[in-house]
Design a protein around this nucleic acid. Structure first.
Lengths: 120, 120
DNA sequence: TTGATACTGAACCATACGGTTCAGTGTATA
DNA sequence: TATACACTGAACCGTATGGTTCAGTATCAA
């Protein structure tokens, strides 16, 4: 039985929501308060606070409260591990299908050079 | 109010589960039946069937039933859109922090050339 | 000091997720 | 023909998610 690493669950889960991806893109342009973001994405403060909580726990966003305003900004944490998984998968995928294509080609060229049987 | 694209939700959600990432890596090595996979990942046939369902609906896996055995294999669908989002985010992230670093540097060099005030 | 603003936390809600059991159906094999 | 095998679907279960409302607390501004 195989046990797989789960440290990628949180970042993938954080990115699985369109609103959260939107928040990250928005914060890439400028810092914003919870109220700003809630307005921009058309939801309650409490709802937005939860999204920010997810992004903060995943390390993708940091926040700082000054007075009554909590300012959210993009964190310096990169998505390198996520990008790394995708890249590794891509490599494996290419190797896999290269091998399959090669196999098909070999079978076809064998087929061409072979006399036909009635049973085939 | 901003509406964001949700076509990336499904692939990110599919990848958010460690078992499903494991299945993809496993299928990268060889095709497998539901029974094989259920054994490998220590869960019931029904549980595994559900994971395969998610991966199949997302287009990451295809299956074919011959006799009583359903064989699962990696699909030719690539994760280009997911990789694309990550790459775009990465670019934006770099631009963002390059600008911030530059700003900090400017402020520091201004500070060095300026006489001190008691209030600072 | 009063009122508006910005957030926070608890509680709730509907739905989805990851898993199970159980009762089938269809297929292979002795 | 009987039995085992591989899967399938429905139903269930506990927990998480994405959102809400409501009732605070703290801070700013007149």
């Amino acid at each position: 039985m195989v046990q797989y690493q789960s440290h990628l669950n949180a970042p993938f889960t954080a990115l699985a929501d369109a609103t959260r991806r939107g928040i990250l893109e928005h914060l890439g342009r400028r810092d914003a308060s919870i109220t700003d973001l809630a307005g921009t994405f058309g939801m309650t403060l409490t709802g937005m606070k939860k999204h920010i909580g997810v992004l903060e726990r995943t390390g993708l966003v940091t926040t700082k409260k000054t007075g009554r305003v909590r300012t959210c900004r993009l964190s310096r944490r990169r998505l390198d591990d996520v990008a790394g998984w995708i890249a590794g998968y891509h490599r494996m995928w290419n190797a896999r299908f290269d091998r399959l294509d090669q196999l098909v080609e070999e079978l076809q060229s064998n087929e061409r050079g072979k006399p036909r049987h009635a049973s085939e």
